[in-house]
Amino acid sequence: MKEDSSITHKIIEIFSSIQGEGLLIGKRQIFIRFAGCNINCKYCDTENSKTNQLGKEYSYDQLNEEIQKLMTPDFDSLEITGGEPLLHSDYIHDFLKKYPYKAMLETNATKPIELDNLNDVIDIVSMDIKLPEHFNSKDEWIEVYENELKSIEVMQLNNQKYYIKIVVSPTTPINVINKIMKDINNISKEVEIIIQPVSPMELWDKKDNLFKISEIIGKNHSVSIIPQIHKYLNVE
């Protein structure tokens, strides 16, 4: 077995900021952005994190040292993000076992086995449901979507605390939202769903579609419409 100091993983950046999305919006977090992603969706606000060629190698102890340098009295939790952090599930699991910080995982949830591996160290999962409009082909979306549904099943079985985020646009088809909600309802009727309108809000001349989507989701789930507030605050 390797010593802890010899186990490293590539991380693009580590920084402290305000959470701008989802249920922990407004909380002070330390963000750990892992390199590399397993999908290539059109809507991505961290394009540089898709490649695993960028970043710096950190051992568990080195990562903890960086976290401690950024620690503030208003710290709420770590934000484990990417890229796609589930590509690094073993490293994340072992780090959080050694240094048990409160942690949120932000993920595309396309790797249910790896997500299951993190159940005992992650406090809350923020998972995306991708839409067909986020990809170049329907086949590409279907593979992603089926794995996301499997991840919901895994989290339900594990009693993992989680919520679902759906990034929508003014032209998101209502029939797609209806299908997604039907599929989710077959797995769980108790999950919080965040509708995240694509930025900037100037794109939304009319918000009729946004309200229709909210009404569909609200038939069976608690739903909130939350834009990316960190962009309004002009912070990373």
Rank of each mutant, 00 (worst) to 15 (best):
N108D: 13
A109C: 12
I67M: 07
D120F: 08
I193E: 08
K165V: 11
M155G: 07
D139A: 03
C44R: 03
S199H: 03
K182Q: 06
T172E: 11
N186T: 01
T46E: 11
G55S: 08
S169Y: 12
S222H: 04
K189N: 14
D120K: 12
C37T: 09
D94R: 12
S137N: 04
Y232N: 02
D76P: 01
I195L: 12
K130M: 01
L78E: 12
N52I: 11
K206R: 12
L131W: 03
I213H: 00
K219L: 05
K150R: 12
K42A: 06
L63A: 03
K150L: 13
E215Q: 10
P200V: 06
P73L: 04
L87I: 13
S151M: 11
K150E: 15
G55R: 02
K42W: 02
V168G: 06
H134G: 01
Q160G: 03
I92V: 15
I67A: 07
E236L: 13
K165P: 05
K97W: 08
D208G: 01
T72P: 02
I195W: 09
I25M: 15
I25L: 15
H93L: 15
C41P: 09
Q68N: 14
I193M: 08
W141T: 00
E133I: 10
F34H: 10
D208W: 00
M127P: 05
I193H: 06
N64L: 03
R28I: 08
L203Q: 06
V223R: 00
G20Y: 13
N119W: 08
N40L: 02
K212D: 14
C41N: 05
K111W: 00
P170H: 05
N52K: 12
K138N: 03
K161P: 00
L78N: 08
V223F: 04
H88T: 07
T110E: 02
